[in-house]
Amino acid sequence: MTKRQITVLGGAHLDRRGRIGGMTVPGASNPGTWFEEAGGGGFNAARNLARLGHRVRMISPRGGDRAGEMVAAAATAAGVIDCPFTFLDRNTPSYTAILENDGNLVIALADMDLYALFSPRRLQQRATRERLAASDLVLMDANLPPETLTALVDATAGSNRILAGIAVSPAKVVRYRQSLAGLDFLFMNEAEARALTGAEAAAVEEWPSLLRSQGLSGGVVTRGGKAAVAFDRNSNCLAVPPALPALADVTGAGDALASGFLAARLGGTGLAGCLRHGIAAAVITLHSPFAVAVEMSAGNLARVLALVPEPQMLS
């Protein structure tokens, strides 16, 4: 495999997850366990791509606190080249989630104000411009302000590199509205696709046309354990994830899918093969208690790929 140069810009923060021990009782105290690790859509993808053998740089704002040190340590452990800009008097952003006993999300709170300081001016710094120019893939997430996403798309337009985005959440995916036409791929779940298109509901086969009508030329829409759909400028395809007996944790599965898909695309794989690789990466993550599976590797991805059915090409 050829090692590619990748730059990721977006969320890299503290990820807290509480898991309820039994049946969820709304409006009451629920016994459970608490866990902390480094997270963030962009950072999860960056670590997965590094574990898959690529040279990955992560650019993100950070506070001068213990959480920031945790993020730096996680980058080193995964082989990511850490390129933060640090505000010593600020706190590193955080994401706090409450999960049901089966691993599904109940509710989450995102304290992300520091990302507002990632302004378009940061992209004009010489070191950042050089990193972007040398990249085969530039990946961003919607923790960045909308004007920064637009500036980033403009700064990297007109090249042979892949430019992709991660939706992050229904509330944040709309930040891409002014930059959709410049993206090669956007990775989202069905709730995020609804937020972006305004569609109340749609059959899975309808998402490509609905998203193309918004100006997006390529993307993936996931639907939990149900069929996911992918599209690019020329084709659409559908794939059903393999049934899993149990989920360790759903956190990071979508970021892993984006990583597996993009790693395959960098290798010249077609749309259907990219979707299979993405689903295989998500399966590895769903079996892990961490947002980024320690077991993520090119070898393990190839083995799990055998479990993923061939996608169905759509007209």
Rank of each mutant, 00 (worst) to 15 (best):
residue 125 Q to N: 12
residue 125 Q to S: 11
residue 126 R to H: 15
residue 126 R to P: 08
residue 127 A to L: 07
residue 128 T to S: 10
residue 128 T to R: 05
residue 130 E to I: 12
residue 131 R to M: 10
residue 132 L to I: 09
residue 133 A to T: 09
residue 133 A to E: 07
residue 133 A to N: 01
residue 136 D to R: 04
residue 136 D to S: 04
residue 137 L to R: 01
residue 138 V to R: 00
residue 139 L to Q: 01
residue 141 D to V: 14
residue 143 N to M: 05
residue 144 L to H: 02
residue 144 L to E: 04
residue 145 P to E: 12
residue 146 P to N: 10
residue 146 P to W: 01
residue 146 P to D: 10
residue 147 E to P: 09
residue 148 T to D: 09
residue 149 L to K: 01
residue 149 L to E: 04
residue 151 A to R: 09
residue 151 A to D: 04
residue 151 A to C: 09
residue 153 V to S: 13
residue 154 D to M: 14
residue 154 D to F: 15
residue 154 D to I: 12
residue 154 D to T: 15
residue 156 T to F: 03
residue 156 T to L: 03
residue 158 G to R: 07
residue 158 G to K: 13
residue 159 S to K: 07
residue 159 S to F: 11
residue 159 S to H: 12
residue 162 I to R: 03
residue 162 I to E: 00
residue 164 A to T: 02
residue 164 A to H: 00
residue 166 I to D: 00
residue 167 A to V: 01
residue 168 V to I: 12
residue 168 V to F: 13
residue 168 V to C: 14
residue 168 V to A: 12
residue 170 P to Y: 08
residue 170 P to L: 03
residue 171 A to R: 10
residue 171 A to V: 12
residue 171 A to M: 03
residue 172 K to W: 12
residue 172 K to P: 06
residue 172 K to S: 13
residue 174 V to C: 13
residue 174 V to G: 07
residue 175 R to W: 05
residue 175 R to C: 02
residue 175 R to S: 07
residue 176 Y to P: 02
residue 177 R to Y: 08
residue 177 R to A: 15
residue 179 S to E: 04
residue 179 S to M: 10
residue 180 L to K: 02
residue 180 L to H: 09
residue 180 L to G: 06
residue 180 L to D: 06
residue 181 A to V: 12
residue 182 G to M: 15
residue 182 G to Q: 06
residue 182 G to W: 06
residue 183 L to E: 11
residue 184 D to I: 05
residue 185 F to P: 00
residue 186 L to Y: 09
residue 186 L to M: 02
residue 187 F to N: 00
residue 187 F to D: 01
residue 188 M to C: 11
residue 189 N to M: 05
residue 190 E to P: 03
residue 190 E to Q: 14
residue 190 E to F: 13
residue 193 A to F: 14
residue 194 R to L: 07
residue 195 A to H: 05
residue 196 L to K: 06
residue 196 L to E: 08
residue 197 T to D: 06
residue 198 G to E: 11
residue 198 G to R: 13
residue 198 G to C: 02
residue 199 A to D: 11
residue 199 A to E: 13
residue 200 E to A: 14
residue 200 E to P: 05
residue 200 E to W: 11
residue 202 A to Y: 03
residue 202 A to G: 07
residue 203 A to L: 13
residue 204 V to N: 04
residue 204 V to D: 09
residue 204 V to Q: 08
residue 204 V to C: 08
residue 205 E to G: 08
residue 206 E to D: 15
residue 209 S to G: 14
residue 210 L to W: 06
residue 210 L to K: 08
residue 210 L to M: 06
residue 210 L to E: 08
residue 211 L to W: 00
residue 212 R to D: 02
residue 212 R to P: 02
residue 213 S to F: 01
residue 215 G to N: 05
residue 216 L to G: 02
residue 217 S to Y: 07
residue 217 S to G: 14
residue 219 G to I: 08
residue 219 G to F: 09
residue 221 V to S: 03
residue 221 V to M: 04
residue 222 T to I: 10
residue 222 T to H: 07
residue 224 G to R: 11
residue 225 G to K: 11
residue 226 K to I: 04
residue 227 A to N: 05
